[in-house]
């Protein structure tokens, strides 16, 4: 059948709109790397000339390295735990007749829609009443709540993507739940697990609101940037740091999306 039918015949104005939309989506973000190579303390046109100096300066700044390490620690812990819990939850949601499934899923997905500030202050109040000092651990707890819905949402399509009878076949052939998980379930959902790890790491790495309310004396990278934004003379180095973060985030997310591509393909209906 011809790929172009009456309904989806080319529509030039719409096509132009789409391209403009994408440009509008990316251009503001692309100004950050543009100005990060500008040899001027001021972020303004006209450009003064190319320089690496903001990056070099960044390299020698110890607080940047410290907050980077903090963010990596929090991101690693959050992504591993959120993904592990996400695997269990996605299996329970997709594989069993669970009474109350709808409300449970709704409850777990709540952090996707409730404003982050509410979770931030609510957790802050709880932790302070319990007398828990704010630290990277409390940031990680906050990030868990933000990341868990994403981990589950990434893994559910993976579990739905293969038939329950494949796991039943393993049980039938003599393997108990533990071995069935490691010999059948895990190898099949593995790309989703990897994607979930990468995506939740990125979310945690970039997260600001929870960190704002829940971090103690050790800042995460976004917290460090927030602190620097008060000083206009720091703008160029913040631009350099932001450009690096954006580049790394894009890269990690693209890998995650690539690993998960066959699940994402389900978003694309066959054109008939």
């Amino acid at each position: 059948m011809s790929k172009t039918s009456y309904i989806n015949r080319p529509n030039r104005p719409l096509q132009i709109y789409a391209v403009l939309f994408l440009i509008f989506l990316y251009v503001p973000v692309l100004f950050l790397p543009l100005f990060s190579f500008n040899d001027s303390i001021y972020v303004r046109f006209p450009l003064e000339g190319f320089t690496w100096r903001w990056y070099i300066e960044l390299w020698h700044r110890e607080p940047v390295w410290n907050s980077l390490m903090n963010s990596v620690k929090v991101g690693a812990a959050t992504s591993v735990i959120a993904t592990a819990l996400g695997i269990f939850a996605a299996k329970a949601i997709t594989r069993y007749r669970m009474p109350g499934r709808g409300p449970i899923v709704g409850f777990v997905m709540l952090p996707l829609v409730v404003p982050g500030i509410i979770f931030g202050v609510a957790l802050l109040v709880l932790l302070s009443r319990l007398g828990v000092p704010l630290s990277l651990y409390t940031v990680a707890i906050g990030h868990m709540i933000v990341c868990l819905p994403f981990a589950i949402a990434t893994l559910i399509p993976r579990f739905e993507g293969f038939n329950k009878s494949i796991e039943e076949a393993s049980a039938d052939l003599g393997e108990n739940g533990w071995w069935t998980f490691w010999r059948v379930t895990f190898p099949i959902v593995w790309p989703g697990v990897l994607a979930s790890l990468l995506l939740t790491f990125t979310i945690s790495f970039d997260e600001f609101i929870m960190a704002f309310f829940l971090s103690g004396t050790e800042p995460t990278l976004p917290m460090y940037i927030w602190g620097q934004l008060r000083f206009p003379q720091q703008f160029p180095s913040v631009l350099a740091l932001s450009s690096l973060i954006i580049f790394v985030s894009f890269f990690i997310v693209l890998i995650g999306q690539y690993l998960n591509r066959d699940v994402q393909e389900t978003l694309v209906k066959k054109d008939t």
Partner: peptide, 8 residues
């Protein structure tokens, strides 16, 4: 772009 830092 959604996956990159909101702050940035």
């Amino acid at each position: 772009p959604f996956w990159t830092s909101y702050l940035l």
